[in-house]
Amino acid sequence: MKQTSPTASVPGEPAKPGTHGVGDRIFSGLAIGSGVFILALLAGVAIFLLIEAWPAITASSDEIPGGDGLVSYIAPLAFGTVLAATLAIILAVPMAVAVALFISHFAPRRVADTLSYLVDLLAAIPSIIYGLWGIAVLGPALVPLTEWLADNLGFIPFFEGPASTTGRTMLVAGVVLAVMILPIVSAVAREVFTQTPRGLQESALALGATRWEMIRMVVLPFGKSAVVAGSMLGLGRALGETMAVTIILSVSGGVTFNLISSDNPSTIAANIALDFPESSGLDINVLIASGLVLFAITLAVNMLARAVIERQKLDES
């Protein structure tokens, strides 16, 4: 489909048709086997969650923590989860694309190599460290900014305030998550940007395109679906991220778009991590039910990503 040149098929193959067939069968057996295994694993997880969540799903609403039923319990958590992850994606993707482009098309070789190594290193930092950094460094550092936002842009619901004085806000959680998913998104983008066929790039330049015009004309369209795919990977990670959010976010539980106050919705994963050790009985089933919702959200995101990528492939061919 893409620009691969038609290479001739390997000559001199049909020497031993017998072994050929066996090899093929082993390979296809392995391939089918692992496919089935992964499906079974996925189904197993789903079934486990469903069974364990069932008592909570069927329980009467006053038995659920909060007393308003399962939906009212999980909805704010799901909201917080999606809000934090969306914020992270919005912050991370432009940055990641910029970093990837800088590495693939602007930086001199040595700078590019060092930089991509450093960005990859970001992925190796444990999330607890990010959490500590968020609460100890980034949060306090962003307090003046959030105060300014509350004072000057307070009419926008996101910056309504009052600004948290500790910096344990949704905004800080989002920024930390963005830094955490930056490496994966930029690695995927960088990889595909550097694979943009040389001939296409040269054609654009030979038409009198500047480097930036060439990138817009050839590199970005070529890498678009990979950037979407990388973003979805990042989104998946941000949705499930637990430790950093648990540490950073000061939680009150309500549903709010206010990103800079100290009243924040928690996320599903952080809530499970915080509450699970002290829970027993039905409360555990309730937490698992929230886990089921997280599972469903992640699955939906991934399926959406697939659909987007498939659509683009169709458009291109």
């Binding site: 893409k2 620009q3 066929p197 296409l200 030979a206 038409l207 009198g208 070529f222």
Partner: peptide, 20 residues
């Protein structure tokens, strides 16, 4: 950039922009 605009080029392998 302006040099290349005045002196155009056609390459060995046909390579229209695939997304266009």
């Amino acid at each position: 950039v302006s040099v290349r605009r005045q002196i155009g080029m056609v390459f060995q392998s046909p390579n229209p922009f695939p997304t266009m």
